[in-house]
Design a binder for these strands. Sequence first.
DNA 1: TATTGATTGAAACAGTTGTTTGAAACAGAT
DNA 2: ATCTGTTTCAAACAACTGTTTCAATCAATA
Lengths: 216, 216
Amino acid sequence: MSSNDLDTARDRIIEAAGEIFAERGFEATTVRDICQAAAANIAAVNYYFGDKQRLFVETVLTAHRWRMDQAALPNWTADTPPRKKLADFIATFIRRVRTGPKDTWQNRLIMREMMRPDAACAEVVRDSIRPQFEILLGILRALLPEDTSAESLHLTAFSIVGQCLFYHFADPVVRHLVDDIEYAEFSIDKLACHIANFSLAALEYTARHVDAETAT
Amino acid sequence: MSSNDLDTARDRIIEAAGEIFAERGFEATTVRDICQAAAANIAAVNYYFGDKQRLFVETVLTAHRWRMDQAALPNWTADTPPRKKLADFIATFIRRVRTGPKDTWQNRLIMREMMRPDAACAEVVRDSIRPQFEILLGILRALLPEDTSAESLHLTAFSIVGQCLFYHFADPVVRHLVDDIEYAEFSIDKLACHIANFSLAALEYTARHVDAETAT
DNA sequence: TATTGATTGAAACAGTTGTTTGAAACAGAT
DNA sequence: ATCTGTTTCAAACAACTGTTTCAATCAATA
């Protein structure tokens, strides 16, 4: 999003809408606030996007495209070991997801919308989340026995992304649970390293003890 | 919450408000919908609570008190193995957290408000979340080597609760990623079983290979 | 310059929001 | 029955919402 792109009213509206949507959510955001922040007329939203809902969808999709370009997966060769692929995936994923003071409205908006089951969510899942999900499943297939069921594969994938997403969704809670010094030490690299270790350990263990049972 | 408590309009309003607030959030909820669901007059909200905002605060506090009364963790004896404790903890945690038709609005409301750092829910973290967190840390201390650092302990705990919280926060995405048949199979027991297996495997592996390193 | 099409502007629209009003209905005590 | 304080009700309030309208403005082309 170079500064040149902001000279048209349409782009200014998306930029302003993204920040306000990310901060207050869809319902609490008014088109008047958006247009005022974008230095555009009230009618501009309906002129360019039809209605508020479609502006919202367009904003979410724009945010997602932007986010995908920011932190891309490294280029893997044919002989890249799956363990390395998984570590790369986790590091990239947590880099995309982690919020902070320097966080962009694109990230906050996507995260907020993951919990809102509506049209925008469905499109984002189809266009952007599912491809990433399939990449992860491919990595896990190489790390787990061949007869692993699709369901187990999915649950394992959810366990991995769940660990990453936690540091976004529960960030206010994390901030209260550990002291400030330790919180400051939670760098992206450290979190990614821990999650990769934790998950790889679980995978290597279960890969040997197929059909592990819960302690009872 | 016996049916006797719903006699007064005030209690009916809190009950209805809790369900709608938990589902749609504060902004998207109208006092008209609340009063209609509570079979009360429009003026009742302002009569009993002053305004919509104070009704909301009262509802969150009520949900918090209700959740505190739910003694969900089973009674452990001195010789209950830590593995069993961890499995119990995970099952209880995911049962509290999981969103679904059978879930209570009290849980969903607390979960929703957990991500508002500015709200007065910092005390909810202090009164309700931290004690649970300390319980989990105690279990993990028994499962990990004694020289495990506090930071590693915390990261491990976050990995576990992160897996559980995922199914709450990312539920709409999960619904789109797997087909309906598989989604219907994601019972609370199955999810809890998987997360316990995954986490115990990771713990048992790292307990042997202290200071595991990321594959590079 | 005149014309065309795209964009902007201020005002108004119809509907909904949270809130208030004042009278009616109620219950219990004198 | 009368008085008291509490609770309910329908109606209306003022403010705000997303959206529409239509004239004004602008840029480029013939």
